[in-house]
């Protein structure tokens, strides 16, 4: 497992039905591009987060394919429409097979 990987998300705790809310996500990850060389001239192998998915109550909000050109500590900001109270489910997929997940509840009135 890549070291020091920690997902962070910012989701409002409350909203009104049908509101469009802004979500920010960031995961600490070095996003080694596979383009760099070490001190001995050997290519440092690629090791990135290659996919990020955000769902709300089982319905997809956004599904992103990441390439090595995404910066260290991948950051995404996007909107989501929240029809009812529920839970956001965020998932990051690592090249090394690891999957990182975090969930956030929102109360819709």
């Amino acid at each position: 497992m890549a070291s020091g990987v920690k997902p962070r998300v910012k989701v409002p705790k409350k909203a009104s039905a049908g509101d469009v809310i802004t979500i920010k996500t960031l995961i600490s990850h070095k996003m080694e591009s596979g383009q760099r060389k070490d001190g001995d001239g050997n290519v440092i192998p690629r090791s990135i987060i290659n996919r990020f998915v955000a769902d709300f109550n089982g319905e997809n909000v956004i599904d992103v394919t990441l390439e090595p050109a995404i910066s260290t500590n991948p950051y995404f900001q996007f909107d989501a429409m929240v029809p009812e109270s529920g839970e956001f489910h965020f998932t990051w997929y690592d090249d090394d097979g690891d999957v990182y997940e975090t969930k956030k509840k929102i109360t819709v009135s």
Binding site: N60, V61, D63, I70, D79
Partner: peptide, 20 residues
């Protein structure tokens, strides 16, 4: 760089990120 696939709940079909 990246491909964004939008679900039904992403009303504005917009996103921001940081790239190299």
């Amino acid at each position: 760089v990246a491909t964004f696939n939008f679900g039904k709940l992403n009303a504005s079909r917009s996103a921001s990120t940081r790239i190299r």
